[in-house]
Design a binder for these strands. Sequence first.
RNA 1: GCGGAUGUGGCGGAAUUGGCAGACGCACCAGACUUAGGAUCUGGCGAGUAACAUCGUGGAGGUUCGAGUCCUCUCAUCCGCACCA
Length: 825
Amino acid sequence: MDRRYDFKAIEAKWQNIWEENSYFKVYEDKTKPKYYNLEMFPYPSGHLHMGHVRNYAIGDVVARFKSMNGYNVLHPMGWDAFGLPAENAAIQNKVHPARWTYGNIENMERQLKGMGISYDWDRELATCKPDYYKFTQWMFLKLFENNLAYKKKSAVNWCPSCQTVLANEQVVEGCCERCESEVDKKQLEQWFFKTTAYAQRLLDDLEKLPGWPEKVKTMQRNWIGRSEGCQFSLEIEGSEETLSVYTTRPDTVFGVTYMVLAPEHPLVEKLVAGKAQEAKIQAFVKKMKSTSDIARTATDAEKEGIFTGAYAINPMNGEKVPIWIANYVLMDYGTGAIMAVPAHDQRDFEFARKYDIPIRVVIKSPDSPAKGEEMLEAYAGDGVMVNSVEFDGITVEEGQKRIIAYMEEHKIGQGTINYRLRDWLISRQRYWGAPIPIVYCPDCGIVPVPEKDLPVLLPEDIDFKPYGESPLNQLESFYKTTCPNCGKEARREADTMDTFVCSSWYFDRFCSPHESDIPFSWEAVDYWMPVDQYIGGVEHAILHLMYARFFTKFLYDINMLSCEEPFTNLLTQGMVLKEGAKMSKSKGNVVSPEDIIGTYGADTARLFILFASPPERDLEWSDQGVEGSYRFLNRVWRMVNEYADIIKEVNIPDNFAQLDADACKLRFKTHASIKKVSEDIEERFNFNTAISAIMELSNALNSYSDNEEQDLPVVKEAINALLLLLSPFSPHICEELWQLCGNEEAICLQKWPTYDPDALIQDEIEIVVQISGKVRDRITVATGLAEEELKQIALASPKIQQLIQDKTIVKTIVVPGKLVNIVAR
RNA sequence: GCGGAUGUGGCGGAAUUGGCAGACGCACCAGACUUAGGAUCUGGCGAGUAACAUCGUGGAGGUUCGAGUCCUCUCAUCCGCACCA
């Protein structure tokens, strides 16, 4: 009678049934509440890794749970398919990136389907397909139309290994985020999206995201880096030029003893022209420009500078202060020039000490010396202004406002807000990406490709080896075109777009993926968006998650979307580790999902990965742990098989009348488990504790099965609950067992069980009796006793009697339903 | 340096509101069944003790009848940011 747990056959069978019956296909259905559940779509590297398995297993529990709870669940999957790795792999393996990518997609799709995730596969998309990137280009055009896409020449990050420029966000500690090569600075003309135009909204709306981890919001806040201060101009002695600076400490303006320009500052050349030290300064500037950013911005980097020979006039007191050039001032923040107040800024302090520049205290505080010479470090704290003429005695905070007001009144400067966030550089000098839909006409200049001419197709027949500019520049059939305006011969933009552009709107496309004239329909996004639950790795905390937010706000502004934030709730899952380290080929500690699924089945793999750790935390892979999960599923398999035929015809009554103690206990466990599992999934995503509760129910059922007299309706109720509760985690085995128990309709279509509060009422409970906080006895009492009664019963316990006989009771604390604490001396 | 998170048995991890520390699982030990066991079942499993007492949530203090949980200080690990004026 024991049927073997043949997971291979079972999993294949149910994956087919789900697909054939389109159980996970969804439409906009206004009669049901919608739930858009999304996992970050993968880059098609060719093989799933354990991080993917974890990501999609988590997502599938949420999707199946919500669906069983009556939600209309959108759960799509697609491919982030453009990008450098495809191109690099293609070069290495001498296959075309397209072929390589589509081959990978095919394989990963097969693997993903083998996991049994409840995707609506009809919505599958790949960003490298013309029917998708047509609209990535459309997005570009819309941004261009709204003056949010522009071209400018500036110093940009250049990765010599990837042979392309990178956005700021893609440079980590001066190195390429992808290949870790050191990034150079190059002066290039490139396309940017004006993310800075949305800086304030991107910052403010973080407040509207209570469902996001604080950590991610903090990272975004830091990245946006808002600061309040003021910008003002200084005259330069003997020159027509003025110098503009930005400071967050206008209250210290009377403490300025020198000014600093960034080496790249345009004024440098004009100031030093014809001066005696011109050559020396030019040499210094050249040296600074050639120093890499990492070396220049490292914390312990020595401050270096040189005096220009020029002087600026402090507009507040008419003082003449020397203008220096120094490595510690960056061209691309603020105005690229600062007022230096060595007494109250550590960097200026260090510089002033090194070059013997005076240090003047203008903020008085008991925490710091009153004389510059006596200071050991700059004082940046609170205090009152001194040496500041009419502003003396004013606090730091008040002083900032008053100085700004004064400057505005006297037309010296004005209050300004500055952001660390830069515009998003989206040009890439590589082949495998969406072409930027722009044409350069000798007469009309920069001309956008008309919408009707989209997509600008990425040609396939091309030598795509990188050589420092886009390979498309070599292909005449691509770049040679006519101006959409005047019809004259013109040249296409050959750069492609950063892949993060493609992934900034894919969640919108999933809502109506088959539209061919518009990126997505209003009805669809209005119904589905925003994503209710987004799940993925924390490595996208800034990059993808900020770009996607930027796109969403833009699309909202042009009335394409009705929401301003794309992701209501965000879950950032932890990494999968082996032997305490991230799985990687170089460490040789990679566990292949395909092997695990082949040996134990997808149900086991999913169960283990969800059981081993709560989702946000890192997960330590354990082969033995997998065995354990496999054993558990086998136990469930055997037990339910034993009962399957017996309980087939049993009816579960609406009211359980007379139950013996053991049956009552099992019923209690059944309903307590329903309650716990529901709450663990719904409220806290604590799948690990949900699974342990299911295991407890299984254990209780197992113990009960030893009873000679068994109450079958109670057993059936318990088995039903067990299978329903387990089904989001390990769906295939639950479907099979559900069917074996005589149920005709698939388990994934069932309603999630609800608990019966009556079953949770117990006649008796155990109460802990403490003496002075230490547990001394446990007593079983009827539920619902009054405090006084409880106290008397506790005191009457023989054990307690004995222990307190020569003591005086000082007081007694009663916590109804839990404990009695007798404080005795 | 700044900001954040974490620290609990041999291991992964529970403890939801200040109320029985160690749920559940792994590993391990013993037993049953068995020709056999790396299957399955039963039992044990923080330290300590003959048994109790007792000790025990990184460490030191504190609040409380009672602290893994609250407060102060401190250590360690991990992550993020880091000349942003």
